[in-house]
């Protein structure tokens, strides 16, 4: 389609406006709702109407919500560090060394990341009970490896393939072992990729729900998605929409800021990995 012709059409800009509105509106409306209290909550307001922090105060002061945030931060960070550590060496081998069955191995790793997580739920449940980490953060850290590790390996492999061969050859001629090549030569070049992959894996771990729901049994060990998913009022009928929206905004704003800062890198990582975070 010819670009110039399209841009002259007012329809094009209308489409742009619709896309932006559709994308942003639910988040905007959650923010508006999170500042509304009492009867204001039960009137539809398209524009910010009141500005009341009491929903935020209610969320932060009660029901272990702060604890859940700390749980999520700890779990997601540990998972990412663990996955990156294992993935850097593995992706060096997958991207840089020719060996038989490499293609098959890559496909298997990809297959694991596309696994229906429910298929391993029963087996993982048993494993976690057996090790004795049920209802602890370690249950999540262990189980999140199933999607963070294949994903980081996959993305880092595509990044590493693109690094010039000459640098590596020069290092080898100088007598560098593969370990030295990774730590001294590739790691400094790879850190932008590590930031991207780490961030995407972090978002994936932060957002996970099925394992976190199944492997925790008390309010103090819940992660943020479980805490929000199960946040309920005094009675079944009375859903506390104000606090729920406040909690949603609290956990989403940092993510949105991170995503906006690292936009370009995230898009590059997403399209390289092709895996939803």
């Amino acid at each position: 389609m010819t670009t110039q012709k399209l841009l002259k059409q007012p329809g094009f800009y209308a489409l742009v406006v619709v896309i932006v509105l559709f994308s942003v509106f639910p988040f905007y409306y959650a923010i508006v709702t999170s500042f509304a209290t009492g009867t204001d909550l039960f009137k539809v307001n398209y524009l910010p109407h009141s500005f009341d922090w009491s929903n935020y105060v209610a969320v932060m002061s009660g029901r272990n919500f702060v604890r859940s945030i700390l749980n999520s931060v700890f779990i997601a960070t540990t998972t990412v560090v663990f996955a990156l550590f294992l993935a850097v060496t593995a992706s060096y081998a997958l991207a840089r060394v020719r060996f038989r069955g490499r293609g098959l191995l890559l496909m298997t790793i990809l297959a694991v990341s596309m696994f229906p997580q429910i298929a391993v739920l029963a087996g993982l449940f048993e494993l976690i009970r057996f090790i004795g980490i049920f209802n602890t953060p370690w249950a999540m850290i262990l189980s999140y490896t199933i999607f963070t590790l294949p994903f980081t390996v996959w993305v880092l492999t595509t990044f590493m393939r693109d690094l010039p061969v000459e640098i590596e050859e020069a290092a080898i001629v100088d007598g560098a072992t593969p370990w030295i090549v990774i730590t001294r030569v590739f790691l400094p070049l790879l850190w932008p990729a590590l930031v991207t992959t780490g961030l995407l894996a972090f978002i994936g771990a932060w957002n996970e729900f099925l394992f976190a729901l199944t492997f925790t049994s008390s309010e103090t060990t819940r992660t943020v998605p479980v805490a929000i998913g199960l946040l309920s009022g005094a009675s079944q009928q009375e859903i506390p929409w104000g606090p729920i929206m406040a909690a949603s905004v609290i956990v989403t704003v940092p993510l949105v800021i991170l995503v906006l800062i690292f936009q370009r890198k995230i898009v590059a990582g997403l399209t390289a990995g092709g895996v939803k975070g």
Binding site: I19, F27, Y29, W206, F209, V256, L258, V259
Partner: peptide
């Protein structure tokens, strides 16, 4: 358009 992607699924469900 990256905003919907970044929001946790549970949070989008609640919103």
């Amino acid at each position: 358009i990256l905003i919907p992607w970044a929001i946790p699924t549970i949070v989008s469900a609640k919103m």
